[in-house]
Amino acid sequence: MANWSDPQTTAAPYATAAGARAGAAYDAGLRSYMLSVYNYMASGVLLSGIVALLFSWGGETSMAASVFANGGPLVWAIILSPLAIVFAMSFGQNKFSTGTLQVLFWSFTVLMGLSLSTLLLRYSGESVAQAFFAAAAGFAGLSLYGYTTKKDLSGLGSFLIVGLIGIIVASIINIFTQSGTLALIISIAGVLIFAGLTAYDTQRIKSMYQYVAGTDMVGKAVIMSALTLYLDFINMFQFILSIIGNRD
């Protein structure tokens, strides 16, 4: 005899269907969230590249060459302003509105473009292009790994942060020693560390979605995540360029 009155037999299909719909909705939201992060990050890199190209246009007669040759407060403003914006966004993200974070993000990418223009004056165009595409290929592969892997990369984060601090200390020391060997070691270590951070940060950003999904924090999370991946890519690009770049 069919047990048509048993609530367990009638509720199970509906519960399964509801769970499947919820899972599909979550997956769709996650894809949209990650796509927004990558779009912001890629747009920021593109904007920085355009600004760097325009600012350095003309080589030795460019505005960049004139500004950096003369030195002064403007140079320090170009160098330090991006760092100040990163700190402001990091510590003020809970207080700032999404619109304010957007303005800060785009301002940061413009200022980074001004700073990166020196690379176009220092290295050949072919070297810059090679380093960029190498960094882009590496970033894409590592970010995909971080997104798809089932392995927990959280333990890797602490190790990478310690390595990053080591690079900063070594770079400060090399300002005074001017050692070519140490500079090469720093560059190789920098590529490896930011390669690892790309995978680690991607997994962390993906995991973050479950906490911000359906809240007004999504927009802020997208911008801050894009900033993180932007920094991973730009640093990896610069370290690669310092290894393979040919100076003009």
Rank of each mutant, 00 (worst) to 15 (best):
F91D: 02
A84K: 07
Y38F: 15
S97H: 09
A64Y: 11
F68I: 03
L101M: 13
V86E: 05
V45L: 13
S66N: 14
N39S: 15
A88R: 04
A88C: 11
L46Y: 01
M63G: 05
L46V: 09
A77V: 15
A42R: 01
G59T: 09
F68P: 00
F105Q: 00
M41F: 10
A84C: 11
S90R: 14
M89F: 12
A64G: 03
G49H: 06
V45Q: 00
M89C: 11
L74E: 12
T98A: 13
S81F: 11
W57M: 14
G99P: 02
F55Y: 11
S43D: 03
M63L: 15
T61F: 05
S66I: 02
N39L: 09
G72R: 12
G59C: 06
P82N: 04
A65K: 12
S90Y: 03
T100D: 03
N94W: 04
F87P: 01
T100F: 09
I78N: 00
S56F: 00
T98L: 03
G58S: 05
G72T: 04
S56K: 01
V51A: 06
W57L: 14
M63S: 15
F96L: 07
T61I: 10
A77K: 08
L74G: 07
A64E: 01
V67G: 07
S90E: 14
S97V: 02
A64N: 08
S90I: 03
G92E: 12
S97F: 07
G58Q: 06
L80G: 05
S56L: 00
T61A: 13
G72I: 04
V86L: 15
A77E: 07
A77R: 14
L101A: 04
S62I: 15
F68V: 02
L80D: 06
V103C: 12
V67D: 04
L46F: 15
L101S: 04
M63R: 13
A65H: 10
L47W: 01
G59W: 10
A64L: 01
V67L: 13
Y40W: 14
N70M: 09
Y38A: 01
